[in-house]
Design a protein around this nucleic acid. Structure first.
Length: 484
RNA sequence: GCUCCGGUAGUGUAGCGCGGCCAAUCAUUUCGGCCUUUCGAGCCGAGGACUCGGGUUCAAAUCCCGACCGGAGCACCA
């Protein structure tokens, strides 16, 4: 009989070899701030490490100073992001600081005769590859290869002048597997280590060496890197190493953002199309943090998505749902009206509304107003003469005329169906809300300014994080970032 | 051209290695109801899927073959 236990919803089980300590890694290129895609890597890898009382390593795969050039600030950003997500790495490794290691193994491979220095231009090599033929350099003896390798390191060759290839099988049925490049020449200063090196390892080489040296037990990698494993296995065989267990996940696309690469994001930010890496329009962790998303919600969101090989397109709605659960209990309620319209309260002088800060807590806020209040443009558009509505926590009114808007205060509140709307007081403050889709402007109650840094709910509008309060000649102005 | 991988409700996901307990799990979305101290909140309820065609079998989401669809690799990118 087989036992099918009900598992808690969560990540699929990690294939365990038994007895070994689990070591996971997340290995980004710090060429920009962490995106939602990188966040998935942080969450899932660290989660597996936690589940098995293992180790979580953050490794910066920053070995391309040209095409995917690292951004100096981004190293710290990743550290901050990990900390914020409660996924602090047990160890941090920077590839560009461990170049000697890669050189050492390159030499070892040359000595074993399983690697060679190749001088073919890319196009020429492709010809050999397509015809399953070895290029002439493959047959060079060890002495000659060592000599060429030294010259590579000394800068004797120009960029693209020579590469170091790993011998695999030039007749492999899969063209993607034939003698791949392990190290190449790049004569451009690296943001972190300067111009100390001219020979740089490719990702396939660097990450293969590191995964072994760091004792990584499980690798989770994108489907696009599936062939990397097959390439790297040749290297592991040459060196007599055991390859880690691998899991593969498909591409993730966030429906609301489409596909934006880090390089593309960086280009647009540098062009001034966005305010920065934390612009609320961007799918970066920094942006979500500024918008007031809770780390726990982000964690649950990515865990619910799991690890499957299918390419997926998930909606932010799932994240909103998780975040709502996290934020609803702690967000105080306030009134904010977008595109305000003034409403004159006839026969009124001044009012003090006693309003609940949260529907399930006995905690009140006061809103003082004169005989005018503001309602939102959206609500205004639906008003009809003679209609009764309730200004929440204040009073019921009957609309006497629309333009200009005048209403009579009704002493006895209506029974039954009546629409209830939020309002802003005569001495309200200006509020600007930055949203993924643009900016809303309006008026809110003055107490909003006291919630700096907090996530609050603007009733009938949504959750926002109070980002800053700026003093202007016209008075205080609140800038809020829209959560959802 | 060569090679590899995948396809369960609108969207994710469980189940698939060891076929029956699957008239298929959970979440989200959608719809309806309740609440009216808001709501995009909460509570209750409903709807909605095994890509297709063959085969094996008493029995197939699960095993086999084929088709179709989708993604990826064949970079001196990560």
């Amino acid at each position: 009989m087989k036992e099918k236990e009900k598992r808690e919803p969560g990540l699929p089980e990690l294939p365990l070899a038994g007895g070994e300590k689990v070591v996971m890694r997340f290995a980004p290129n710090p060429n920009g701030a962490a995106t939602l895609g990188s966040t998935r890597g942080i969450i899932v890898n660290s989660e597996y490490a936690k589940m098995h009382d293992g180790k979580f390593i953050l490794r910066f795969d920053d070995t391309d100073p040209v095409l995917k050039r690292p951004l100096l600030e981004a190293y710290d950003w990743y550290l901050e992001d990990c900390a914020w997500l409660n996924a602090e790495p047990d160890e941090v490794v920077v590839a560009s600081e461990r170049m000697d290691l890669y050189y050492k193994y390159a030499e070892e491979l040359l000595k074993k005769g399983v690697a060679y220095v190749c001088f073919c231009p890319a196009e020429t090599f492709k010809q050999y590859k397509d015809h399953k033929r070895p290029c002439p350099h493959r047959a060079a003896d060890i002495e000659a290869n060592m000599g060429c390798w030294k010259k590579m390191l000394n800068g004797a060759y120009e960029e693209k002048g020579a590469v170091l290839r790993i011998k695999t099988d030039m007749a492999s049925a899969d063209p993607a597997l034939r003698d791949w490049v392990a190290l190449r020449i790049l004569k451009r200063a690296h943001p972190r280590v300067g111009d100390k090196y001219v020979v740089w390892p490719t990702l396939d080489f660097e990450s293969a060496i590191e995964d072994h040296l760091l004792g990584i037990t499980h690798i989770i990698r994108g489907k696009d890197l599936m062939k990397s494993e097959k390439r790297q296995r040749f290297l592991y065989d040459h060196l007599g190493w055991k390859y880690p267990t691998t899991m593969v996940w498909g591409r993730i696309k966030i429906q609301e953002f489409g596909k934006l690469s880090t390089s593309e994001l960086r280009k647009r930010i540098e062009n001034g199309e966005y305010e920065g890496w934390d612009d609320p329009q961007l799918p970066t962790l920094k942006a979500l943090r500024r918008r007031g998303f809770q780390p726990e919600a982000i964690r649950r969101f990515f865990i619910s998505i799991g690890v499957t090989q299918t390419d997926i397109a998930v909606s932010m709605k799932n994240l909103y749902a998780e975040n709502r659960k996290a934020v609803d209990a702690l967000a105080s309620r306030y009134f904010f009206v977008r595109n305000p319209k003034e409403m004159k309260l006839k026969d009124g002088l001044s009012f003090v509304a006693k309003a609940l800060k949260h529907p399930s807590k006995e905690d009140y806020r006061e809103i003082r107003t004169g005989n005018t209040v503001y309602i939102s443009g959206d609500d205004f558009a639906k008003l009809k003469q003679g209609q009764r509505i309730r200004l929440k926590f204040l009073c019921d009114v009957e609309i006497e005329q629309i333009e200009p808007l005048v209403a009579n205060v009704i002493e006895t509140p209506a029974e039954g169906e009546i629409s209830i709307i939020q309002w802003a007081p005569s001495e309200g403050i200006k509020v600007v809300v930055k949203k993924p889709g643009g900016t809303d402007e309006g008026i809110g109650e003055p107490l909003i300014a006291s919630e700096l840094g907090n996530v609050v709910q603007f009733e009938r509008y949504g959750f926002v994080r109070i980002d800053s309060v700026v003093k202007k000649e016209t008075g205080k102005e609140v800038v809020a970032y829209f959560t959802h």
